[in-house]
Amino acid sequence: MKSFLLILFFSFFTVFSLTAHAFKVLEIRNNKILVDLEGEVLERGDYLLTLPGAEFQGRAIVISIRPGQAIGKLQDGNFSVGEEVKRVLGEPSFKEEAIKISLQVKYLNNAISVKQKDASFPTPNSETVSMSGNSVGGFAVIDWPTEMFLLRGSLGYEPVAVKGTARFNSCSSKTSTNCTVDINYIAASAAIRYDYYRKSRLVTWVAAGSGIKFPLNKNSTSLNKGAIGIANSILLATGADYLVSKKYFVPVGLEYHYSLNYSEKVPVINQLALHAGVGMEF
């Protein structure tokens, strides 16, 4: 008798659990299902499973939450409109349609080449002086989703501090071989980002676009400060986003900027940058 009561209790508990967390399938389209929450709670990353004995057996992962409804992406099997499905807790995952905004710190390695001449008479000695240096900047990034990719924009502060040695006295008003450039830029970029790998908390991506830099403070022993203007570049980037909670993530990335400038007025700045920060989904 005691064993029978225990079996009856656990059977009732199991049925009650399935019923309490059951959701009705409202629509199936493009390998996605729309379910009615019916006053219950689902989170992104949860799994939806068909109940035992259903006509079809399927599994979907919740990718989006709406008021009173949720969207699941089909992973295995199939579902039927009108049937009830149960919830299985899962890890948090990125929303495919979410806007991402992040604040990041950027470690910069800059390389600049400038054409210089010394004061030799009657024919000055000409040379190209190569300079390099490291600096740290910061910027904000927004990733706006579309059907195929994300539109990526950034705005930030980038200091460029480089130095090099000339063969001739072509720097510091043609009195020294020590050449320096120290420029603080407001930098902006626009790119197309493609997420090529997505799994629960992790997304990896590649991007390509262009950048523009507006000089603020300018100091240099190798350039005419009054002639330093806007710099342009092509950028290539790769990186990853890791979700640490339901809304917050940690972005990391690597960028290469190839300069489009070839004059003394705007130095040729080739840049390699490593960046990381914190972001939020909206």
Rank of each mutant, 00 (worst) to 15 (best):
4 F>M: 12
10 F>S: 03
13 F>K: 07
16 F>M: 10
17 S>G: 09
22 A>W: 06
23 F>Y: 09
25 V>A: 11
31 N>D: 15
35 V>Y: 02
36 D>A: 12
37 L>W: 04
39 G>Q: 05
39 G>A: 02
40 E>C: 02
44 R>Y: 01
48 L>A: 05
50 T>M: 12
53 G>W: 03
54 A>M: 09
58 G>R: 05
63 I>E: 11
65 I>A: 02
69 Q>F: 11
71 I>S: 10
72 G>V: 03
75 Q>S: 07
77 G>E: 00
78 N>M: 10
79 F>G: 08
87 R>G: 00
88 V>H: 07
92 P>Y: 00
93 S>A: 15
95 K>V: 09
98 A>Y: 09
99 I>Q: 07
100 K>Q: 11
100 K>V: 07
101 I>M: 03
106 K>V: 14
106 K>A: 14
107 Y>R: 08
109 N>L: 12
109 N>I: 13
109 N>D: 14
110 N>R: 07
111 A>M: 12
114 V>I: 15
114 V>Y: 10
115 K>C: 06
118 D>A: 02
124 P>C: 10
124 P>M: 09
125 N>T: 09
126 S>N: 12
127 E>L: 06
128 T>P: 03
131 M>N: 12
131 M>F: 13
133 G>N: 01
137 G>F: 14
138 G>R: 03
142 I>Y: 06
148 M>D: 09
149 F>N: 04
150 L>W: 10
153 G>W: 09
158 E>D: 11
161 A>P: 03
162 V>M: 03
168 F>L: 08
170 S>I: 06
174 K>I: 13
174 K>D: 10
175 T>Q: 13
177 T>Q: 12
178 N>V: 15
180 T>G: 00
183 I>A: 04
184 N>D: 11
186 I>C: 05
187 A>C: 02
187 A>M: 11
187 A>H: 05
192 I>A: 12
196 Y>M: 02
197 Y>R: 08
198 R>N: 09
201 R>T: 08
202 L>D: 04
202 L>Q: 08
203 V>A: 06
206 V>Y: 07
210 S>G: 15
212 I>D: 08
215 P>T: 01
219 N>A: 02
219 N>T: 14
221 T>E: 05
227 A>S: 01
228 I>C: 05
230 I>E: 08
230 I>A: 03
231 A>H: 07
232 N>Y: 15
232 N>D: 09
232 N>M: 11
236 L>D: 02
238 T>Y: 07
242 Y>G: 02
244 V>N: 00
246 K>D: 13
247 K>Q: 08
249 F>A: 02
253 G>R: 03
257 H>F: 09
257 H>M: 06
258 Y>N: 15
259 S>G: 13
259 S>C: 03
260 L>G: 04
264 E>G: 15
265 K>P: 01
267 P>Q: 10
267 P>A: 05
270 N>T: 00
270 N>C: 06
273 A>D: 06
278 V>C: 01
279 G>Q: 00
279 G>S: 01
281 E>T: 06
281 E>P: 00
